[in-house]
Amino acid sequence: MTDPASNRPRVGLFVTCLVDMFRPSVGMAAVKLIEHAGCDVVVPRAQTCCGQPAYNSGDRPDAKALALQTIAAFEGCDYVVAPSGSCAGMLKAHYPRLMDEGSNDHARAADFSERVHELVAFLVDVRGLTSVPGNFTGKVTYHDSCSGLRELGIKTQPRRLLTSIKGLELKEMADSEICCGFGGAFSVKFPDISNAMVEKKSANIAAADVDVILAGDLGCLMNMAGKLKRQESSTACRHVAEILAGELDDPPIAAALDKR
């Protein structure tokens, strides 16, 4: 609970599988931003995955077990924040739906759901942040990941924080609200369709003529970055938290490591 000495709310960081395994620097950027917004961060060890792969594959029992595990792991946190619209959407919108209406588990999931936020929405809507530690000079565009946009209503928040950065020019690309084709298991089960979708996305990115493409979900970013890399595009691909926090030491997603 809120530390009585410092009066800083206690935020549990839900890291997400992809950030944990592929791009921990996004997690570090998230920590920096949450602390910047006047909160203390804890990272429960008992968290793993939100259960979305099971849930979306029709495996309800496993999804439910993972939901209960996650809820238990974050007991005692004032807020639960995830650097992903997709995982936050799972925690917030779908956990209660996994439990039987009227059950004790349902009540716990509903209470948990109230405390869950996607990172950027948390910074803006809950903490009222108007400026960020990051500084960046260049042109960027922002891809609206589906779950964040349509399940959580995330649209203006990242744009507001991005445009607070002096020197950063935000350019809107065409169809920023259309799915990039990732879709988790979809990209593995239907790779041809997924590839056709990300091809349309990369064409829109190219037409926007920017230095960096940003999004709030690592899954979408890995998909887009993978495509851009294959096309030998010079557009860099980063999680929005990296720019907002000014954590730009690591090379962009899928970029070659500097020969130092």
Binding site: G27, V43, S187, P191, D192, S194, G226, A254
Partner: peptide, 23 residues
């Protein structure tokens, strides 16, 4: 294990350490 994916795009490599380790 992802030949479908890598047929049309690259698969980004991880940074090498997990967030839990860094934390």
């Amino acid at each position: 294990f992802a030949t479908g994916w890598t047929g049309g795009r690259d698969f980004p490599a991880p940074q090498g350490r997990t967030f839990q380790e860094l934390w």
